[in-house]
């Protein structure tokens, strides 16, 4: 009860610091605009992502098609929005999966410790020494082609970093005296984790979440670029760049615009993460 009253003000000041950081808020605004446009794609654009029209092939950006048209005469703007839907959904789901699994495994490792901890961390070490791209490619082609299985592989690839972060947080907090005090008072097991440990590791997990999400967007779009997992005519950000690059001599913009949008989105996510981290660090320095 007492620690609640102690904790709340610091959390609020942490969030209020974030809302006051201009770089962080600008990044958040850019990210939200991209996400909202992608989610509400059918409302934002009147063109479908796969409706072709031969007459519009390689059309330069104009009022009708603000980003122009690709080699099939499809509206690039709507393809980017629908592509974003695909990329962000896959990347987001994979991140959330990795994070929840990481929470469970990390807390288990931190609380149980001993041999279990040792074996799991060893496995995580091996897993993290495989390039995630290789892991995802192998998973996709071994588990079944074009079924989006690579989403689970992406989650697995991101898992070790989450487990490591959360385990470190848990074991650090477990050593603090107020946890021992709580234990002595009879709070145990899951209650201890939910009441005392979880709130303490959440902030740093948020920061890690943004970094992981940015990396998953990159990974997902690389898969699209390589043409593994997502098949045309479905749109995916990486795939758009690939399609654009095949015609780069004729019309560079069909490759450059999607590339720019991806980079902008990843950058905004990374900047949000940086700003969050600075706010957290600033908070710790004050105490």
């Amino acid at each position: 009860m007492e620690d609640k009253s102690l904790r709340l003000p610091s959390e609020r000041s942490w969030l209020s610091r974030f809302t006051k950081d201009p770089a962080g808020m600008a990044a958040l605004a850019i990210f939200l605009v991209i996400v909202i446009c992608c989610v509400a794609a059918p409302l934002v654009t009147s063109y479908a992502y796969d409706s072709m029209s031969v007459a519009d092939r390689f059309m330069k950006p104009c009022r009708e098609h603000i980003f122009g048209c690709d080699y099939c005469g499809r509206d690039l703007f709507s393809r980017i929005l629908y592509g974003g839907r695909m990329t962000l959904r896959i990347a987001g789901t994979a991140t959330v999966l990795a994070c929840s699994a990481g929470l469970v495994v990390g807390i288990a490792c931190g609380c149980i410790g001993g041999r279990f901890d040792l074996i799991v961390m060893r496995m995580m070490e091996v897993l993290s020494s495989v390039p995630s791209l290789l892991l995802v490619i192998l998973a996709e082609c071994l588990m079944g082609w074009g079924k989006g299985n690579f989403m689970y592989a992406m989650a697995v690839a991101a898992l070790p970093s989450f487990v490591r972060l959360i385990r470190a947080g848990v074991s650090q907090i477990m050593g603090r005296s107020y946890i021992e005090a709580a234990r002595a008072l009879g709070v145990r097991g899951l209650g201890l984790v939910i009441r005392h440990i979880l709130p303490n590791i959440l902030p740093s997990m948020f920061v890690h979440l943004t970094g992981a999400f940015a990396e998953q967007i990159l990974l997902c779009s690389v898969m699209g670029y390589l043409g593994i997992g997502v098949n045309p005519p479905k749109a995916e950000w990486g795939l758009l760049v690939y399609e654009g690059y095949t015609n780069i001599r004729k019309v560079p913009f069909t490759a450059l615009i999607p590339a720019f949008v991806i980079a902008l989105c990843v950058l905004s996510v990374n900047l949000i993460g940086n700003s969050l981290r600075d706010c957290l660090d600033g908070g710790e320095k004050d105490e």
Binding site: Y242, Y245, V266
Partner: peptide, 14 residues
Amino acid sequence: SSIPSYCLAVGLAL
């Protein structure tokens, strides 16, 4: 770290 490698490659190649 925010620019996907293939996007950077597109720019460089272009």
